[in-house]
Computed example of a mutant assay.
Amino acid sequence: MALDPADQHLRHVEKDVLIPKIMREKARERCSEHVQDFTKCCQDSGILMVVKCRKENSALKDCLTAHHKDPAFYEECKAEYLREREEFRRTGIPNKKRLQKLSSSM
Protein backbone atom coordinates (compact mmCIF):
# COMPACT_ATOMS: atom_id res chain seq x y z
CA MET A 1 0.00 0.00 0.00
CA ALA A 2 1.63 3.24 -1.15
CA LEU A 3 1.32 6.30 1.04
CA ASP A 4 -0.37 9.37 -0.38
CA PRO A 5 2.33 12.09 -0.63
CA ALA A 6 -0.23 14.73 0.37
CA ASP A 7 -0.88 12.78 3.57
CA GLN A 8 2.76 12.80 4.70
CA HIS A 9 2.62 16.18 6.47
CA LEU A 10 3.90 15.77 10.01
CA ARG A 11 2.82 17.77 13.03
CA HIS A 12 5.41 19.09 15.48
CA VAL A 13 4.67 16.34 18.02
CA GLU A 14 5.07 13.67 15.34
CA LYS A 15 8.46 14.99 14.18
CA ASP A 16 9.86 15.80 17.61
CA VAL A 17 8.31 13.13 19.85
CA LEU A 18 6.65 10.19 18.12
CA ILE A 19 9.20 9.45 15.38
CA PRO A 20 12.18 9.88 17.75
CA LYS A 21 10.46 7.41 20.11
CA ILE A 22 10.36 4.82 17.30
CA MET A 23 14.00 5.64 16.54
CA ARG A 24 15.02 5.06 20.17
CA GLU A 25 13.20 1.73 20.31
CA LYS A 26 14.64 0.47 17.01
CA ALA A 27 18.15 1.75 17.85
CA ARG A 28 17.99 -0.04 21.20
CA GLU A 29 17.08 -3.26 19.35
CA ARG A 30 19.89 -2.78 16.83
CA CYS A 31 22.38 -2.03 19.61
CA SER A 32 21.12 -4.88 21.81
CA GLU A 33 24.59 -6.43 22.15
CA HIS A 34 25.94 -3.15 23.59
CA VAL A 35 22.88 -2.81 25.84
CA GLN A 36 23.47 -6.33 27.19
CA ASP A 37 27.20 -5.68 27.73
CA PHE A 38 26.51 -2.43 29.60
CA THR A 39 23.73 -4.01 31.69
CA LYS A 40 25.91 -6.97 32.64
CA CYS A 41 28.81 -4.69 33.55
CA CYS A 42 26.54 -2.56 35.75
CA GLN A 43 25.12 -5.62 37.50
CA ASP A 44 28.60 -7.02 38.11
CA SER A 45 30.11 -3.71 39.28
CA GLY A 46 27.59 -2.43 41.81
CA ILE A 47 28.25 1.13 42.91
CA LEU A 48 31.57 1.20 41.03
CA MET A 49 29.76 0.94 37.69
CA VAL A 50 30.42 4.60 36.88
CA VAL A 51 34.14 3.89 36.84
CA LYS A 52 34.21 0.26 35.69
CA CYS A 53 31.68 0.45 32.82
CA ARG A 54 32.98 3.48 30.91
CA LYS A 55 34.05 1.37 27.92
CA GLU A 56 30.66 -0.38 27.66
CA ASN A 57 28.77 2.89 28.18
CA SER A 58 30.84 4.61 25.51
CA ALA A 59 30.26 1.78 23.01
CA LEU A 60 26.52 1.88 23.70
CA LYS A 61 26.33 5.66 23.29
CA ASP A 62 28.34 5.50 20.05
CA CYS A 63 26.00 2.86 18.63
CA LEU A 64 22.83 4.77 19.59
CA THR A 65 24.23 8.10 18.36
CA ALA A 66 25.21 6.60 15.00
CA HIS A 67 21.62 5.47 14.46
CA HIS A 68 20.13 8.80 15.55
CA LYS A 69 22.37 10.74 13.15
CA ASP A 70 21.66 8.45 10.18
CA PRO A 71 19.20 10.17 7.78
CA ALA A 72 18.27 6.84 6.17
CA PHE A 73 17.36 5.43 9.60
CA TYR A 74 15.19 8.50 10.28
CA GLU A 75 13.39 8.02 6.96
CA GLU A 76 12.86 4.32 7.74
CA CYS A 77 11.32 5.17 11.13
CA LYS A 78 9.27 7.99 9.59
CA ALA A 79 7.86 5.59 6.98
CA GLU A 80 7.01 3.09 9.74
CA TYR A 81 5.23 5.84 11.70
CA LEU A 82 3.28 6.94 8.62
CA ARG A 83 2.17 3.35 7.95
CA GLU A 84 1.01 2.99 11.56
CA ARG A 85 -0.77 6.34 11.42
CA GLU A 86 -2.50 5.40 8.17
CA GLU A 87 -3.60 2.07 9.63
CA PHE A 88 -4.96 3.84 12.72
CA ARG A 89 -6.87 6.31 10.58
CA ARG A 90 -8.29 3.44 8.54
CA THR A 91 -9.27 1.18 11.46
CA GLY A 92 -9.49 3.49 14.48
CA ILE A 93 -7.53 0.92 16.50
CA PRO A 94 -4.13 1.93 17.94
CA ASN A 95 -1.23 -0.30 16.89
CA LYS A 96 -0.66 -1.56 20.44
CA LYS A 97 -4.26 -2.78 20.82
CA ARG A 98 -4.30 -4.19 17.29
CA LEU A 99 -1.22 -6.29 18.08
CA GLN A 100 -2.78 -7.47 21.37
CA LYS A 101 -5.94 -8.57 19.53
CA LEU A 102 -3.89 -10.47 16.97
CA SER A 103 -1.83 -12.33 19.58
CA SER A 104 -4.88 -13.20 21.70
CA SER A 105 -6.76 -14.59 18.70
CA MET A 106 -3.98 -17.04 17.82
Rank of each mutant, 00 (worst) to 15 (best):
M1N: 11
M1H: 13
A2L: 12
A2S: 11
D4I: 08
D4G: 02
D4Q: 05
A6I: 04
D7E: 12
Q8K: 10
Q8W: 00
R11A: 07
H12I: 03
V13M: 05
K15V: 13
K15Q: 14
K15N: 10
D16K: 13
V17C: 08
V17A: 11
L18N: 01
I19G: 03
P20M: 12
P20N: 06
K21M: 07
K21I: 05
K21L: 09
I22S: 03
I22F: 12
R24S: 12
R24E: 14
E25D: 14
E25G: 04
E25L: 09
A27R: 04
R28P: 00
R28A: 14
E29Y: 04
S32A: 13
E33P: 00
Q36Y: 01
D37Q: 09
D37K: 10
D37N: 06
F38R: 01
T39H: 03
T39R: 06
T39G: 05
K40C: 02
K40T: 08
C41E: 00
Q43F: 01
Q43T: 02
S45V: 04
S45E: 05
G46M: 03
I47G: 08
I47F: 10
I47M: 07
L48N: 08
L48M: 12
V50G: 09
V50Y: 13
V50D: 08
V51N: 06
K52T: 02
K52D: 01
K52E: 02
R54W: 00
R54Q: 11
K55D: 01
E56M: 00
E56I: 00
N57Q: 09
S58T: 13
A59H: 02
K61F: 04
K61D: 06
D62C: 05
D62V: 04
L64N: 06
A66T: 11
A66M: 11
H67F: 15
H67W: 12
H67K: 06
H67L: 10
H67E: 11
K69E: 14
D70P: 10
D70M: 02
D70L: 04
F73H: 04
Y74R: 08
Y74M: 00
E76G: 07
C77D: 01
A79F: 15
E80L: 15
E80I: 09
E80F: 11
Y81C: 08
L82M: 13
R83Y: 03
R83I: 05
R83N: 10
R83G: 08
E84C: 01
R85N: 06
E86W: 06
E87Q: 13
F88M: 07
F88Q: 01
F88K: 01
R90Q: 14
R90N: 10
R90C: 08
R90K: 15
I93D: 06
I93M: 13
P94Y: 00
N95E: 13
K96N: 07
K96E: 15
K97W: 09
K97M: 15
K97P: 02
K97S: 11
L99D: 09
Q100L: 15
K101Q: 15
L102G: 04
S103H: 15
S104I: 14
S105P: 02
S105D: 12
S105M: 15
M106D: 14
M106P: 14
